[in-house]
Amino acid sequence: MLSAVEITKVFNKGTINEVVAIDSLTLHVNDGDFITVIGSNGAGKSSLLNLLAGTYIPDSGTITLAGEDITTWPEYRRATFIGRVFQNPFIGTCGSMTIEENLALAYRRGLPRRIRKGITEKDRTLFRDRLSILGLGLEHRLKDKVDVLSGGQRQCLTLLMATLRHPKILLLDEHTAALDPKTAEQVLKLTDQIISELKLTAIMVTHNMRQALSMGNRLIMMNRGKIIMDAQEKEKVKLTVQDLLEQFSRVRGKEFSEDRILLTD
């Protein structure tokens, strides 16, 4: 459904800080896939999501969605099909605006923004209904500003906003990394619940190998801007943390000891 073919992205080209973030990478995402992505720092996980979402345009290669070439589409246009949750809880929501205003913004994703009342009573009923799924009591706080919410609450709200209009694909960029372990666990559970209930296609970047193994139907390991492992369905079920560590040590060699610290849960 979503395909990236031989995409490459180089940052600071021609300077001493040149970094090849994504190196002629090819990825075909099938309808209904829930892909977890792991890799050490600088492997290109976030860059991959940013390229798919249109935050960056690739230097070469093509990206197609449902057969349509979207390689040069700006981010806001791709947002019609793509829902996103970021690592930083502050990026996904507008702090100075109320919960219902944030949801109203998300509810018009992919639709024209008209000079009409931004929130109707009908919208509010729907928002309350959807917010109750979170189990955080936010359905009673529609008019509270988002900046009084905790990081975890903001991530839950962002997740809800990203899926309020059914996205063709949901991109999660280490969306629990900035949260405390207990909250992270709740957000992950919610993520799993929403993805399976709405039958979404999703890509989730994570640092946590246990998470990567327990969630989704497909696992991708990245290193230096390339995909070095792509385990699907049955193959993924058999994988263990030990397998992943071994795979890492094979490709990373002596850098491995440093990565081990970053990767173990």
């Binding site: 947002a79 109203a104 994703r109 923004r113 009342k117």
Partner: peptide, 21 residues
Amino acid sequence: TELGLAIRATGDNPQMARSQG
């Protein structure tokens, strides 16, 4: 309004605004 909310979001958080289309 819908447009007004979009303008406010642009000023508050442009990254969020773009990712909401």
